[in-house]
Design a protein around this nucleic acid. Structure first.
Lengths: 101, 101
DNA sequence: GCACAGCATAACGTCATCGTGATACACGGT
DNA sequence: ACCGTGTATCACGATGACGTTATGCTGTGC
């Protein structure tokens, strides 16, 4: 339960999700992620480190560049399913609201 | 993306997950959740409020008691799948470690 | 109408996380 | 060996979340 909450925390940050999303198409180096997301370099570096430690992403130095890659693309499936549940939840809320009004 | 991160944040707290877990079997009133989790009453109340606002849980006063119930049990599916992915991730990490040693 | 149980909220201290700006480090090219 | 690009890290301030203790509120039974 502890560990599960920690894992969820990894995905509970908009900028971190943006970084992940940038990596959906395949490996990118840090600067490319910076350009794709519009975030500061320091911030991207931090988030990538976190994602690496979390085991979501893999670090691969290549010459003077450092490429990052999503290890298990199933994370994107998780993101998708979570979004789906989120939408269903919003529907329920609207239904509940409609039942009152 | 914003909203998705917020939604993930709902599940990124051990005690909140414990509260959810307590509700897996069906509706419970606050005191019952307190007993099931061992958390303080005030804390349980807060987490339940959060879960309610998030649309995960539904509040239903019944006499002097207040029952809470998980609206869409699909959340438990989400928890399960996330845990599965977490385990797979751990496996990858161990594999990577083994490849080095 | 009172007392009590159940639940919610307020106020507070504490701690973690986020983002930034500045700086250090690593590598390749010249 | 030096410079520039790319990346990581540090130090800092700000913000927000969590948990506790204490107090309020609501409904029930006497």
């Amino acid at each position: 339960m502890e560990a599960l909450a920690e894992y969820f925390k990894v995905f509970s940050e908009p900028n971190r999700l943006a970084v992940l999303e940038a990596l959906r198409g395949g490996p990118l180096n840090v600067t490319a992620v910076v350009e794709a997301t519009g975030l500061s370099q320091a911030l991207v570096s931090k988030h990538l480190k976190l994602l690496t430690i979390a085991g979501v992403v893999q670090r691969r130095p290549e010459g003077s560049l450092v490429f990052y890659e999503v290890i298990d693309k199933a994370v994107f499936k998780l993101l998708g399913q979570t979004e789906k549940l989120l939408l269903a939840t919003r529907r329920h809320q609207l239904d509940a609201l409609a039942a009152i009004l």
